[in-house]
Simulated assay, not measured.
Amino acid sequence: MPTALVTGASSGIGAVYARRFAARAYDLVLVARATDRLNALATELRAAYGVAVEVITADLIDPAQLDVVVNRLRSSPPIDLLVNNAGAALLGGFAGADPADMDKLLRLNVQAPTLLASAAVGAMIERGHGAIINIASVVALIPEYFPGIYAATKSYMLTFSRGLAAEVGPKGVYVQAVLPAATRTEIWGRAGADIEQIPGLMEVDDLVDAALVGFDRKEEVTIPPVPEATAWDAFEQARGGLAAGFGNSKPGARYLG
């Protein structure tokens, strides 16, 4: 059986990914801070699907605890799929943000998934197969709608995923960036928001099931709430049009006096 490691697996998006991959006969390594929840989910999945489930209690902000997960990614049995799901939000603008809170967010949303992917990808390349799912957000594309650095961390995840896909895709490793919009998870309450005041919430099961359709299609970027692929295609064409000018050795005429 292949093995998937899922971070933030105790609830929300991570727990649903764990259930879906268990149903696909993946053995699992579940990572989160909530030991009781992880153990309950592990018991559920072993009984329902007959898969092997390891539990690692870890706060990925803490370097020593992050190292435990890094070491598991580098050990046996090998990890065939990494789901970089653990993350947090930070409400409010940049100017008034607590530097300590921003440091924690950067550690969890940027540093941890980067180091976990680094620990996993080498062995995947050696085997010639593997996959990494990085959970980003639609605010990566519209940061002006979400003040502060949260959107920037998700922009990083999108950019990191696309650059990594270009590098390791030809070597057999598939990288998918998933961009949810507002989804009914505990991230909002933990950040101090009233979830009932957030419009257009997508249910977690719908989000993950749609993302897995994109996974099966080997999409590089999956945006479940966007109804038509043509919208993304137009965005990509516009991006390519901008890139066409990057090799010019002189500034554009609009910048010349």
Rank of each mutant, 00 (worst) to 15 (best):
T3V: 10
T7K: 00
A9F: 00
S11H: 07
G14N: 03
A15N: 01
A23I: 04
R24N: 05
A25P: 01
V29M: 10
V29Q: 05
V31F: 00
A34Q: 15
L38Q: 04
A42F: 12
E44M: 11
L45N: 06
R46V: 11
R46N: 05
R46F: 08
A47V: 09
A48H: 11
Y49D: 12
A52R: 15
A52I: 08
V53W: 08
V55H: 08
T57I: 04
A64T: 11
Q65M: 12
L73W: 00
R74N: 00
P78D: 07
P78E: 12
G87I: 00
L91Q: 09
A97C: 07
D103H: 11
R107V: 00
L108W: 10
A117N: 02
A120R: 00
A120E: 02
G122A: 10
M124W: 00
I125P: 03
I125W: 10
R127T: 07
G128P: 04
G130I: 13
A131C: 08
I133F: 13
L141E: 08
Y145G: 03
T153C: 11
S155D: 05
G163N: 13
G163A: 11
E167S: 10
L179P: 02
R184E: 12
G189Q: 14
A193Q: 07
E196Q: 13
E196H: 14
I198K: 06
V204N: 07
V204Q: 07
A210K: 14
L212G: 01
V213D: 06
D216P: 03
R217N: 12
P224W: 09
A231Q: 14
D233M: 11
A234S: 13
G241F: 11
A243S: 10
G247W: 10
R254Q: 12
R254V: 12
R254E: 15
L256V: 14
G257S: 11
